[in-house]
């Protein structure tokens, strides 16, 4: 079943065409990669899907609904979660707070009136769910540390956990391995596989690390200068001549 259907997305910034007629689909429970050299438009595409940018033309359809004009939070409530290339964490909050606030935003049980009646604090159910995500990501030891005290790799895990707390149908991951060493990258890949299999979450992965893409994605899209130059099964795309050229130039 098609979960995400991005049709002919074009994005122009004052004359520069960042995305030119890009169409991508993601099925439920799939792990799809989106690769391409720096400046190819991968993050711009993510921003169009998650709602931070509104495409100049084209449509975004999610679970059969046109969400092209829906605000970011509306898309999040429909089941699209994301992480950011440059981590966007909530400064001053602990790791656990990140998960609890995401849980509250997801279940939408909070409100001004409840706060006034002193019912605003996280309840047992919310705490339990936050704890299980902490455990899944092996963050229990860091749960009560402020986010500023964490390394980049741990920060990326917190972003992933925060996204998972909203129980997304589609997870957009923007370079989850950047800034991680080989070992951490491998663990991240295994973790994503686990999430995809256990929770049935579809994942669209923007990634630079060729090894991670090769190992963990089923299908691939390749962007270069804002246009799709290849798509198909990971194996076949990796051998595609155009892809080689985009990545390694004419030398190969």
């Amino acid at each position: 079943m098609t979960l995400l259907d991005a049709r002919s997305i074009t994005m122009r910034f004052s004359g520069i065409i960042a995305l030119d007629d890009v169409s991508i689909t993601v099925d439920s429970g799939e792990l799809v990669g989106l690769i391409g050299p720096n400046g190819a438009g991968k993050t711009t595409f993510f921003n169009c899907i998650s709602g931070l940018l509104r495409p100049t033309s084209g449509r975004v359809v999610f679970q059969g609904t046109d969400i092209t004009r829906m605000p970011v939070y509306g898309r999040a409530r429909k089941g699209i979660a994301r992480t950011f290339q440059r981590t966007e964490l909530f400064g001053g909050m602990t790791v656990r707070d990140h998960f609890l606030v995401a849980e509250r935003a997801h279940n939408r049980r909070g409100g001004l009136l409840k706060d006034v009646l002193n019912r605003g604090a996280p309840d047992a159910d919310e705490t339990r769910r936050a704890n299980s995500t902490l455990e899944l990501l092996d963050l229990t030891g860091d749960a009560d540390r402020p986010i500023e005290a964490l390394s980049l790799g741990r920060g990326r895990l917190v972003e992933l956990g925060r996204a998972l707390m909203t129980e997304p149908a589609l997870l957009l991951l923007d370079e989850p391995s950047s800034g991680l060493d080989t070992q951490e990258t491998h663990e991240m890949g295994e973790l994503l596989r686990h999430v995809q299999r256990e929770k049935g979450t579809a994942i669209l992965l923007v990634e630079h690390d060729v090894e991670m893409v090769r190992r963990f994605t089923d299908r691939l899209y390749v962007l270069d200068f804002g246009t799709l130059i290849a798509s198909g099964s990971t194996e076949s795309v990796m051998h595609d001549a155009d892809v080689q050229k985009a990545y390694f130039g004419d030398l190969v």
């Binding site: 970011v72 999040a76 606030v101 049980r109």
Partner: peptide
């Protein structure tokens, strides 16, 4: 009470990163 409750924690999140706060469903 507001600061401890949902209102305050959502505002904290927005302050920390508005795009990220919106990305988890906070308006």
């Amino acid at each position: 009470l507001l600061r401890r409750g949902t209102t305050g924690r959502f505002l904290d999140a927005i302050r920390g990163s508005e795009p990220a706060a919106a990305s988890i469903g906070i308006n």
